[in-house]
């Protein structure tokens, strides 16, 4: 109820934040993440919209999204579904095309990224007029929940190796909770070709290559509450392959 009680203070500047939520089988999580977004944007008073890009989930995610649109209004919740699963990069391109904000948030819809950090992202961006602000699990109060020793070791090891090889000026390369200036996201996403974990890494490595400024905000990452999160041999192999490609090409 907090979201309703808070009066909607209108900020004087004209900044608007578009949150892109690519979804695939997230009918459990989607209402919760949207509720949290409405709560925290309502409290901070920033102008916003949520763009849900559902890739034809068979579990009825889109139907839930339509209900949310009826509850929160068509100016807050925008639905831009696609017929089938087409990958993250194209989902962002698709979403940005319909975004009316001058800033874009990208985050996961599975509740591992908490909207409570959004005001900190916005404040950090304004502090240094950064081109992009990246959430980091590896600095300050940042951290993870639900990871065992093996997962932590792989994560830290992969991160160290990447830092040594690519020197990217950012501590969390595979994280996907970020705030971009709209034109920066458009420019970056056009150049990025990788998939999966590597996509987020490529985005930030290309940002360094193009001399974009990067700010960082420590975030807690709560591994997915509903559904499964996997890190198997295939993921590791494709990560290493992607890392080497970036090593040789950037």
């Amino acid at each position: 109820m907090a979201s309703r009680k808070t009066s909607h203070r209108i900020r004087e500047n004209g900044d608007k934040y578009s949150v892109l939520l690519p979804t695939y089988n997230e009918r459990e999580n989607l209402p919760l993440i949207v509720w949290l977004l409405v709560k925290y944007f309502g409290e901070s008073g920033h102008n916003y919209e949520v763009i849900i890009i559902d890739d034809g989930s068979p579990d009825g995610t889109l139907e839930v999204a339509e209900q949310l649109q009826r509850i929160y209004g068509q100016d807050r919740i925008l639905l831009r579904p696609r017929a089938k699963k087409l990958g993250l990069g194209t989902a962002y391109i698709h979403g940005v095309k319909h975004a009316t904000g001058n800033f874009i948030f990208i985050m996961d819809a599975d509740l591992s990224h908490h909207p409570k950090f959004i005001p900190e992202f916005i404040q950090k961006q304004k502090e240094g007029n950064y081109d992009l602000v990246s959430g980091t699990r590896y600095r300050g109060n940042g951290g993870v929940y639900g990871w065992d020793l093996r997962r932590k070791l792989i994560s830290r090891g992969a991160n160290f190796l990447t830092q040594v090889l690519l020197r990217p000026n950012a501590s969390d390369l595979t994280g996907s909770f970020r705030l971009y200036k709209k034109e920066v996201l458009e420019n970056l996403v056009e150049r990025c070709v990788s998939k999966g974990y590597v996509f987020q890494m490529e985005m930030i490595v290309r940002a360094r290559q193009l001399n974009y400024s990067v700010g960082e905000v420590p975030i807690s990452f709560v591994d997915r509450v509903y559904g499964e999160s996997k890190l198997g041999g295939n993921e590791i192999l494709s990560f290493v392959k992607g890392l080497l490609v970036l090593f040789a090409t950037t």
Partner: peptide
């Protein structure tokens, strides 16, 4: 870095409570 990786127990608890509230 593995040994000092923060475990965000509080964040997980807070989220669980907010999920109830949201539902």
């Amino acid at each position: 870095r593995v040994a000092t990786f923060n475990d965000c127990e509080d964040a997980a608890l807070e989220l669980q409570q907010q999920i109830k509230e949201a539902k």
